[in-house]
Amino acid sequence: MKPVLIVGAGPVGLTLAWRLSSAGLPVQVFEAEPGIPDQLRASTFHPPTLDMFDASGITAELIAAGRITPSWQIRMHDTGARAVFDLGVLSDRTAHPYRLQCRQARLCDALLARLPGGCVHFGAQVSQVGQQDGSAWLEVAGSRIEGSFVVGCDGARSIVRKAAGLSFSGETYPENTILATTDFPFEAHIDGLSGVNYIWEPRGTFSLLRLPDLWRISLHPRAGESAEDALEDAAIQARVDELLPGHPPIQIHEKRVYRVHRRIVDTYWQGRLVLAGDAAHLNSPKGGMGMNGGVHDAMALAEALVAIAGGAAPGTQLARYDAQRRPVAAEEILAQADANRKRMNTVDPEARAAHLAELKAIAGDPARARAFLAKSSMFDGLARAAAAVA
């Protein structure tokens, strides 16, 4: 079998490469960046994702580099009223009944260390992708490289998706999000924080996620404020001043602005061109499902490609992969992330109070909390994917 050519060396592409390589399949990974970018990207690992990496030792490395978060909450900033969800209710379903907050780059580092030398090419910008005669190819620096499949793990602007001629229907949400990291001790100024906090404040919403040595704060520009202006240090300081009047100045370590999308392709494959992760679906980051969903895609796709290498029909296996993952992305990941966003974007005080009352009722009822967390932690989506091809 010719090598599987993977475009993109993020968590999804490297997970796929690792699974295929572990099964004895040849792989080549092409990444435009000069190395693993250690930037402000995903940081939430859900329990089933940690379970998937456990036997390899990767989960232990992530835990050593991250911060275990046994509970998360939704709260009112002005009153401190909150609904707290304890993932311990899932302890009979997982060896990791918590969220782990860890930079996604640490997962990439762990995966890269487990891949054969020379199969990951950094600084390798893919310029063209195509397929013919039961194979696929890509071009890098004017050289054509042949493979059995080309897999796009190359994000929202995927060259593989474009080469396959697949539409990416959906919408771009109107708001920008400003993300910054700081070592400011929010826990000393806001009572009862969890490691992950989604917070209503009188004029909008913000979130706080705790990494081992830093807080990540997500803010939204005020009405009439451009994203560029909102990204200025002074603007971030001013927003924190509004939230915590009289606080000491915060030190901003990293910052970025991003737009949020809700999009999905009509199919995850076209012949020998296949998609996974953000190349196939984009969602609001509320709930931390994007990277985890992409990793779950990679695990399912690896199973399909290994079966093809063993003689199974490519069309049958890739249709199976699509049936496993695309409905989950559309109706579990995108729909749930969208619902999370809409709930947190509620500004009417009575509607917020009603949301919080319902969430507190769920959190206080073990059976309802278990069902709620099984869904929000992505167990339900994985069960649905398994049932789709049973």
Rank of each mutant, 00 (worst) to 15 (best):
R144Q: 12
E33Q: 07
W200P: 00
G155W: 00
Y173N: 04
L62V: 07
L214Q: 12
G165N: 03
R320P: 05
L112Y: 03
I250L: 15
A188E: 11
F184P: 01
A298V: 07
S207W: 12
L282W: 02
F149K: 10
P248C: 02
T177D: 08
A64C: 04
A361V: 00
I58S: 03
D154P: 02
T267P: 06
L100P: 01
P11G: 14
W137H: 11
A313Y: 14
S127R: 11
D266E: 15
L5I: 08
S56Q: 12
A298P: 01
E139W: 14
V295L: 02
P47Y: 09
A302S: 06
Y321D: 05
A363S: 03
P34N: 07
Q237V: 01
S158H: 02
D229A: 14
S21C: 04
R161L: 01
L211Y: 06
V295I: 09
G117Q: 06
D380N: 10
L359S: 11
R82H: 06
T59D: 05
G123R: 11
F45H: 13
N176S: 13
V160C: 10
D92H: 10
L275T: 05
V260I: 15
A42V: 04
A180K: 03
K375W: 05
D278I: 00
Q101C: 08
P285L: 02
Y98W: 10
E139I: 09
R343A: 06
G13E: 11
R99V: 09
A335H: 13
S284G: 06
L356H: 01
L40T: 12
G152D: 11
D322N: 12
R93F: 00
G381A: 03
L356I: 01
D183R: 09
A371E: 10
I333K: 05
N283E: 15
L382E: 14
A319I: 03
P47C: 13
L382T: 05
T267W: 12
V240H: 02
F53Q: 05
W215P: 02
P47L: 14
V347C: 09
F372P: 00
A386N: 15
A17K: 11
V196L: 10
S43A: 15
L179N: 08
V257F: 00
S226Q: 08
T94L: 02
V120A: 07
Q101R: 06
A64M: 08
D191R: 15
A279W: 04
V151S: 04
C108Y: 05
H189K: 12
R325M: 09
G57R: 05
L115H: 15
G130C: 08
A17F: 06
G294I: 00
P314T: 11
A335Y: 14
S158A: 02
D241L: 01
F206N: 03
S284N: 14
E201Y: 13
P248K: 05
T346W: 02
S135C: 07
S148A: 15
A313S: 13
F122K: 07
P26K: 04
Y268E: 06
L231Y: 05
R93G: 02
H96G: 09
P349D: 10
P185F: 09
S21V: 00
A17N: 10
A374F: 03
A323E: 08
L115A: 11
P34G: 12
I250C: 01
T346D: 11
G88Q: 14
I63E: 09
L179S: 08
D92I: 00
K342R: 13
Y268F: 14
T44A: 10
V306P: 00
